[in-house]
């Protein structure tokens, strides 16, 4: 199998046509991580959770100064208060998440019963709704508080996305996310991979393009541009708009599957949220 894939890849290079997409998730992840190992040979694997600052020394200096007084700290405190405050029915988040608050490491996960990818924000809202509370918005606002707290408490856990073998729909969801990642979109005709793989390390206007490896380890993220903390799906929305593609719904199927694929690519990397970025 591996031989065959190698052959296909070689043929593809020779003919200028890319290999077709039949590889296993593990083969995908290896190829993905190896790509960066080759391009940024001096960057150790455990640096990638630091995003673009793993490859941009100037940006990094600025970032290290910011991290001395982390701008996301107040959000962690707010989130802790949220976590501890009982719902109107007297229950708390802890009743939904017995292992909480350090639960970020198990998401996104495949929910066999509902046949869908469950992300942490979605799970939090399911908990709220089951307890008669209004769901939180998925891009801006207080969902970022509780996510900040959970991310902080989960620091040090390892990314470990599981694609259960006993449900082919899980692999299908992963494949959809992968397809999304490599599909060119929008008037500018860019895929995620065009920027974050092919051109990683290059500059686009005033920005250095960061590697996609580690892209999921540190959310939610405080962005100076936003002046606040925002979710992964908010960030992806921005990246879709940037190429003049219509973004998809936060926590809709497309972005959840995308998150499933993208997080899988970072399997083995440490969680280090919340993060701070430009």
């Amino acid at each position: 199998m591996k031989h065959l894939l190698k052959k296909i890849a070689m043929l593809a290079v020779a003919g200028g046509i890319a290999a077709s997409a039949q590889a296993s998730p593990e083969a995908d992840r290896e190829a993905f991580q190896n790509f960066y190992k080759n391009r940024f040979a001096s960057v150790p694997m455990e640096e990638y959770p630091n995003g673009v600052y793993s490859i941009d020394p100037v940006g990094r200096e600025n970032w290290e100064a910011i991290e001395e007084f982390p701008p996301y700290e107040p959000f962690i405190d707010e989130g802790q208060a949220m976590w501890e405050k009982p719902f109107a029915n007297g229950k708390t988040y802890k009743d939904c998440f017995a292992d909480g608050p350090a639960i970020a490491g198990i998401y996104p996960l495949w929910d066999k019963k509902n046949g869908m990818v469950i992300t942490l924000p979605l799970a939090l809202n399911k908990c709220r709704e089951a307890n008669g509370e209004k769901p939180l918005k998925y891009k801006k606002g207080s969902i970022n508080d509780i996510l900040s707290y959970i991310a902080y408490e989960s620091r040090g856990q390892k990314t470990n996305v599981i694609i259960p073998k006993d449900d082919p729909r899980a692999l299908a969801a992963y494949e959809k996310g992968k397809k999304f990642y490599y599909t060119r979109r929008g008037q500018l005709n860019f895929s995620c991979a065009n920027c974050h793989l092919q051109n990683a390390g290059m500059n686009i206007r005033a920005d250095r393009l960061g590697p996609a490896l580690g892209h999921t380890t540190h959310f939610p993220v405080y962005r100076s541009k936003w002046g606040t903390v925002g979710t992964l799906h908010r960030r992806v929305t921005g990246c879709n708009k940037q190429v003049r593609a219509k973004p998809f719904k936060a926590q809709g199927e497309q972005y959840r599957n995308l998150e499933y694929f993208l997080t899988y690519m970072s399997n083995g990397l440490e969680l280090n949220g919340p993060g701070a970025r430009k």
């Binding site: 890849a9 593809a12 890319a18 590889a23 190829a31 790509f35 490599y182 599909t183």
Partner: peptide, 10 residues
């Protein structure tokens, strides 16, 4: 049909 980019080596 998804075509994987040739810069990814399998």
């Amino acid at each position: 049909d998804l075509k994987m980019p040739s810069y990814l080596k399998y």
